[in-house]
Design a protein around this nucleic acid. Structure first.
Lengths: 338, 338
DNA sequence: CACCTCTAAGTTATCGTTTTCTCATACCTT
DNA sequence: AAGGTATGAGAAAACGATAACTTAGAGGTG
């Protein structure tokens, strides 16, 4: 059906080697022959078969993306960042949703390996040992985007989550709050759970505020649980809350309103991630910005360096986060200007 | 480095043909030989090379996704739906962001074709003739997800956009409104622009309300323009507004508040798409739900049928949309229960 | 003028599979 | 016992490219 290099060769009355040479200009071909080949390519409508090429050169210019769920916030932007840089370097990406399930992760890594991807970018809060081992076994470059493994064995790009939540809580303290609640991520999540809670504790201890376990309620990054968590915190009379995600912060604010209190008048709230929810929601939500697009872009750039075996200055990139102050902590009583 | 079928054959002391036979159980092999091969596979850690296989069988079990922007709402869910079904049928997907730019679209289609994808699912509001032609030329199954081409030449999965906006406006009319404004999509967008505006007109004409061009302001699906559009509509004293996207609806509501009016007390607003913004935003926004996940899932299912050459009952699937009534049109003055 | 060198282009092995032939052997027939 | 038919397994030809190795001339040198 589709023309092959052979058809082009026949048409141009040259050998397939010569066609290959003009295709990759890997060797000198006289202008006249070259032109004949070019004409033949046009005439036959020839398109190189990337499969055959990849089989021979042992490179696919394809990388695999392991993502918990492309339809949940944060990831779409990361993936966009990855894809932009990938396309810049002529790489294509396989998208694989795993819901963070071990079985799906293992399965996809296997398939990606069989499809001979040149590298894998992994996303997800928890990296199981089994998965880690398999990623090592397949012997291609791996980059972790927006996460990190316990021993820092893999190159990665991330923010400093502990510092980020430290900054958020410190800001609340600077506003004069003493009873600060937290709605954390799951306890078995080393980042959204452990690291962010640690930042919270550190800010408190630095300000000599005693840490009370009852003021930290474990959430699941879902609105409903966060709503209930907030109700619990209200029983403990908190005067400010730091939630480990914007969605949880929004749910918390709703819980506060539904309980007859007001934000920011009665209680201040800070979220995490600067999703568009945080600025479209009213009151707009003070939040920590994790530079999702950049995490993706830098991860992919790091990947291209690994693939090209370029020297790499830093295998573990820490991108800056930022506290974005909005109405939920009392900023800007004047009208918002969109 | 990696073991090949040859290594397995040598290890099991059989021919590579036999190994291939047990791999695909494409022919009878005695249990004893089979076991030897299986052992050899385990011992060598052999993984089939999908590239070589695909080259031979002329199928890659890979499909390409052309998407305007994975980081903008609606698409992540569609893609998730596609990927879920794809993985169910052992297909992998290439993700390609095009920003709806002709050049990028053409380029990606070319690359996908070179990489021998088995099919392409196209998303995007506008389908240019050049792109359409190229999609036809590469000679593989194409499915349009959440969109349609002018001549309905390609199989597609979508909702009835005209009917959807008709329903929204009819609902506003049923609430007693007469001066209904609309913030539409771009005029050159046959769906978000033309079809949705047509539905608006039809609902008006059915209710014998005269259509006034000044009450339709062209937006771009972006918040800022919609905010300005709403200010214009306010000058015309509208008492209700239908926006062609939730983000525009939210921006409109902000504009209304910032102008000293209130929603739903003074003005009713309806959005489009039931993004999570529409239910997290306060007031929650009445909207039309486009079943994004299902559009993706059904599109991919359609694709698998095309690839398997199964008989297809309907090449043009119209999925049901739904009007979701929330606070922005006055529903539920009682406390929202999350 | 014989010999060498260079250059452009052709031959062919190879990447790792699948699949079509072939073939050897065992088992039925009659 | 000779011939026919399954049956399991091997040999080899693809699939469509790349690249190492050849080779045929053209031109340069002594």
């Amino acid at each position: 059906m589709n023309a092959t290099i052979k058809d082009v060769a026949r048409e141009a009355k040259v050998s397939i080697a010569t066609v290959s040479r003009v295709l990759n200009n890997s060797a000198v071909v006289t202008d006249e022959t070259k032109q004949r080949v070019l004409d033949a390519i046009k005439k036959t409508g020839y398109k190189p078969n990337a499969l055959a090429r990849s089989l021979k050169i042992q490179k696919t210019h394809t990388i695999g993306l392991i993502v918990p769920d492309i339809s949940s916030p944060f990831y779409p932007e990361v993936v966009r960042g990855i894809e932009d840089i990938a396309s810049m370097y002529s790489y294509n990406i396989f998208l694989c949703n795993t819901d963070q399930k071990e079985e799906k992760e293992m399965n996809y890594i296997e398939i990606l390996s069989e499809k001979q991807v040149d590298g894998i970018i992994y996303m997800g809060d928890i990296i199981r040992d089994s998965v880690k081992q398999q990623l090592k076994d397949i012997g291609i470059p791996i980059v972790l985007a927006g996460t990190e493994d316990s021993e820092s064995e893999f190159p990665n790009v991330n923010i400093d989550n502990k510092k980020a939540s430290y900054d958020a809580v410190k800001y609340l303290i600077s506003l004069g709050h003493k009873k600060i609640g937290m709605i954390s991520g799951p306890a078995d999540d080393p980042i959204g759970g452990v690291q962010r809670t640690n930042g919270y504790k550190e800010a408190l201890s630095e300000a000599k505020i005693r840490f009370k376990p009852s003021l930290v309620v474990e959430g699941s990054f879902k609105a409903r649980q966060a709503y209930l968590a907030m109700l619990k915190l209200l029983e403990n009379n908190v005067d400010a809350v730091f939630a480990a995600s914007d969605e949880m912060a929004a749910a918390a604010i709703n819980a506060i309103f539904d309980s007859g209190f007001s934000v920011p008048e009665d209680i201040h709230v800070i979220g995490f991630d600067n999703t568009y929810l945080s600025y479209m929601f009213r009151p707009t939500i003070t939040t920590i910005q994790r530079p999702a697009y950049d995490i993706g872009a830098v991860s992919m750039r790091l990947m291209t360096k690994l693939l090209a075996k370029e020297p790499i200055d830093d295998m573990h990139v820490v991108l800056p986060h930022q506290l974005i102050v909005r109405e939920s902590t009392g900023y800007g009583e004047e009208k918002n200007s969109q």
